[in-house]
Design a binder for these strands. Structure first.
Lengths: 230, 230
DNA sequence: ATATTTATGTTAAAACTATCACAAACGGGG
DNA sequence: CCCCGTTTGTGATAGTTTTAACATAAATAT
């Protein structure tokens, strides 16, 4: 069960913070800041300085006592950790509303994530282009992914088609699926799935809005005498 | 520091799982399943049965020994907890690509979240409609929000405009902001902010894809002798 | 009726995360 | 060259979340 120290798994909590460090360091870099302490990062990010030091130490000793961290160096390191030093080829599956919005969004390509092909089952869309990227029919997806050595598939299809396409994709060289469908995707292979469940996010917001009213209800609830069913 | 038991705060981890319970129970309801045990839910959701029982117990005693949970009743309870028993009025700020995609998406309205107005600063868009919802100029936003008793503002504007609009909005009757801009939003009042940071999500995916290669790098890194700066 | 099975709510333990605290190391000024 | 202030990396500590275990109670079978 015990793993050698060097392979100690980095916790999910840490991983989720990495993009924040990346973003923050990029901003500092743009402002020509040369060095930064965990203290300063703490102020900007709202995490404790201690946590920042521990987070970074999961990946190496990037800092220096009495000096702090070199912004440029740390930025480079975190970029490497996140796999941002190499560019990534993506395909977009589903050219509906959401799909089109994602295709039109340029923010990803500035970080080296480029959509190289779009797929849809609607014959009216096939053959068209969005931002110079051709839309192909889904039946060609396996071939095109393998041929172009694509990394990531963005899933923006209707819910009921998600499973079928995920299975198709899992037989290609794809490494990760960025899933925008509400469906929970399970692929047997070692493909990574990252979910963007908008409804969950909206419901969480709704919960917090509702929280005040809830408190009153809770008290009553807890005092309630359990009733027999039927 | 100690709070009375009844007001014990529900942890974020639990809250994030509530939408999953909601979704799952809706599916069971559709399949006319009358009762369900934590065991069965565990199979479907992939959480442990123990966790499910503990999660639900944060809000009340909804189950019955030897019987389990009544699907319909539990669904209703969780809906109430999430604030889904009443409908919510939303405004969409920003009718760009992402904004249009969100406006066209019908999934929210089936859960009682309705967009009642759209705002943009582009005069070419103002006056048009998306799915029968009018696009107004942003300068009218405060008036329209208050007049219509709007709950939630969806922020889908360019990054640099996010802060300004957030401040505007915070002076209205709005209760929550659903933030799709990469910017971290801070409003002083008791408005709830829920972030959808797509780039973070993509980077997390990239991290996991990159994880294998990283392991090798890590070992070297840890053995590296620290060098002096400059 | 009664026994057996099912399955909850809850307490206790384990696992995981975040924070604290400090020795060790470096930079910079005299 | 040495001292002093700074700031890291890390081991100890505190806090949170998850999992396990079980007493208790209802449902079902006999």
């Amino acid at each position: 069960m015990e793993q050698p120290d060097e392979f100690k798994k980095v916790s999910m909590a840490v991983i989720k913070r990495l993009p924040k460090y990346h973003q923050c360091l990029l901003n500092l870099l743009k402002d020509n800041v040369e060095r930064v302490s965990s203290q300063k990062l703490s102020k900007i990010l709202g995490f404790t300085a201690s946590q920042i030091r521990q987070d970074l130490n999961n990946f190496g000793e990037f800092g220096q006592q009495g000096y702090g961290y070199n912004v440029s160096q740390l930025y480079t390191e975190i970029s490497k950790i996140l796999g941002l030093n190499t560019s990534h080829k993506m395909v977009l599956v589903g050219a509906g509303n959401l799909g089109q919005a994602l295709a039109n969004y340029t923010g990803f390509s500035t970080h080296g994530f480029n959509i190289v092909a779009i797929f849809d089952s609607n014959p009216k869309l096939v053959g068209r282009k969005i931002k110079d990227i051709s839309i192909y029919h889904v039946e060609d997806i396996e071939y095109i992914i393998n041929e172009n050595d694509v990394d990531i598939a963005i899933l923006a299809v209707p819910q009921d088609k998600a499973e079928k396409i995920a299975i198709k994709i899992s037989k290609t060289c794809i490494r990760g699926i960025w899933n925008f469908t509400p469906k929970e995707i399970t692929v047997n292979s070692d493909i990574v799935v990252e979910n963007v469940h908008l409804i969950d996010s909206l419901f969480t917001l709704s919960y917090h809005i509702n929280e005040g009213k809830l408190q009153e209800r809770l008290i009553k609830q807890k005092r309630k005498i359990s009733l027999t069913h039927r």
